[in-house]
Each structure stands twice: as C-alpha cells, then as structure tokens.
Measured scan of single mutants.
Amino acid sequence: NDEAKKEAEKLWKNNKSEDEIKERLERAGISPDEAEQWLQELR
C-alpha cells in the first residue's frame, strides 16, 4: 500500500489528473474510499 501511495504522490507532482491517480491506486488494490482520502491528503 505504501508503494502505491508513493506512486500516487509522484503522479500528483507530475500533474496527473486525479482520476488517473485514483485509477492507479485502485488497480494497486486500494479501495476507492481510501484512494479518495489519499488524494485529499495530497491536495
């Protein structure tokens, strides 16, 4: 999970869309709710 979150953070810094980041997190096995929460922390 931490690995996926690091990846999400990297994508965020590269200005990827939130949808793309969420999709990537969900593919890594993170629930949509958790993915949404993680994005809010990044904002």
Rank of each mutant, 00 (worst) to 15 (best):
K6S: 08
K16I: 15
E41F: 09
K13P: 02
G29E: 04
L42T: 02
A35I: 15
A8F: 07
K22E: 03
A35Y: 10
S17L: 05
Q40M: 11
L39V: 05
W38H: 02
N1T: 13
A4D: 02
E41S: 10
K10N: 11
S31R: 04
K22Y: 06
L42N: 02
D19G: 06
G29Y: 00
E9I: 12
I30V: 12
E18D: 10
D33R: 07
E36V: 06
N1I: 14
N15W: 04
S17G: 05
W38G: 01
K22T: 01
W12H: 04
L11P: 02
E9L: 14
S17R: 05
L39K: 00
K5N: 00
K16Y: 15
L11W: 12
E18P: 08
E7N: 04
P32K: 13
N15R: 04
A4S: 04
S17F: 03
D2N: 11
Q40K: 10
K13Q: 10
R43E: 03
L11F: 05
P32W: 10
D33I: 11
G29S: 00
K6H: 05
W12L: 05
R43T: 05
E3A: 13
E7S: 05
A28D: 10
E3R: 07
E41R: 08
P32A: 11
R24N: 10
E23Y: 05
L25W: 03
L25T: 02
D2Y: 13
E34H: 04
A28L: 15
D2C: 15
S31C: 12
K6R: 10
G29W: 00
N14V: 05
A35P: 00
K13L: 12
A8I: 10
E3P: 05
E26A: 12
E9K: 10
I30H: 03
W12V: 03
D19K: 13
K16R: 12
Q37E: 09
D19Y: 07
R27C: 11
L42I: 09
W38N: 00
K6D: 05
K22P: 00
E7I: 12
R24C: 15
L42D: 01
R43P: 02
E3W: 15
Q37G: 04
E36K: 05
N15Y: 08
K10T: 11
Q37A: 13
R43A: 05
D33T: 07
A35E: 01
E20L: 07
S17Q: 04
E3S: 09
E23I: 07
L42Q: 04
N14G: 07
K13M: 12
S17Y: 04
E18M: 10
Q37N: 09
N1L: 14
W38F: 13
E20I: 07
D2F: 12
A35L: 09
K16E: 08
D19S: 13
E18K: 06
K6M: 09
A4T: 07
E9H: 12
E36A: 10
G29R: 00
P32Y: 05
L42K: 05
K13V: 07
E41N: 09
S17I: 04
S17H: 05
A35T: 06
D19F: 11
D2M: 13
L11T: 02
N14L: 13
S31L: 08
L25P: 04
L42V: 02
K22C: 05
E26R: 12
D33N: 08
R27A: 15
E36D: 09
E18S: 08
P32S: 10
P32E: 08
E26V: 13
A8Q: 01
G29T: 01
L25K: 00
N14A: 14
L25G: 02
K6T: 07
A28S: 06
E23W: 06
K6E: 06
R27I: 14
